[in-house]
């Protein structure tokens, strides 16, 4: 049975935003550190490392989860999506991102990547998400700048716009 020794680094490969990535990690390395320091994808932020602030939220196999509560070796072969993978093109924002910009849904922007990942998945999987459902999903994220008012507006605006797109 494969046993990864604590004292060595081991190859970790997965798909990040549609492209294969790999690097070496000790078994104890957190996915958040692997993304930031091994892969160099610094868009995912770290705010608490005990699963409560939500800044490090990334999509793991289609579900938003905490990168700080996940080991890099656990996601070998997985599909990971981060804030860097949300925009349709390097020079274009997604509808959700655009709504955040229009509604001032961010200030310092540190919690924003995790929030975008959660909302992106929510609006994709549940396009008819109600205001309370959006709020409950947001409750897994701490934002100290906005008081959440503008984030809720941005999320609701994105939902409306995405809904129209689907109708059309």
């Amino acid at each position: 049975m494969p046993r990864l020794s604590a004292d060595c680094r081991h190859m970790v490969s997965f798909t990040l935003n549609g492209a294969p990535v790999s690097g070496e990690a000790e078994p104890r390395m957190l996915l958040s550190d692997f993304l930031r320091y091994v892969v160099g994808a610094t868009g995912t932020h770290v705010g608490c490392e005990h699963g409560l602030c939500g800044a490090c939220t990334v999509e793991i196999d289609g579900q938003p989860g905490r990168a700080c509560l996940t080991l890099a070796v656990q996601v070998r072969g997985a599909q990971i999506r981060t804030v860097e993978g949300l925009a349709p093109a390097p020079d274009r924002l997604s509808v959700l991102q655009e709504c955040f910009r229009e509604h001032h849904g961010l200030q310092c922007g540190f919690c924003t990547p995790g929030i975008l990942v959660t909302l992106d998945a929510l609006l994709r999987d549940n396009p008819a998400a109600s205001e309370p459902e959006i709020r409950e999903a947001l409750a897994g994220h701490l934002c100290r700048c906005t008081g959440y008012v503008s984030i809720m507006r941005a999320a609701l605006a994105a939902q409306q716009r995405l809904g129209k797109k689907t109708d059309a």
């Binding site: 990864l4 020794s5 000790e26 078994p27 957190l30 490392e49 080991l71």
Partner: peptide, 11 residues
Amino acid sequence: MKPARFDYVAA
């Protein structure tokens, strides 16, 4: 705030 070392077995 990083874990101490451990081995990892994927059963």
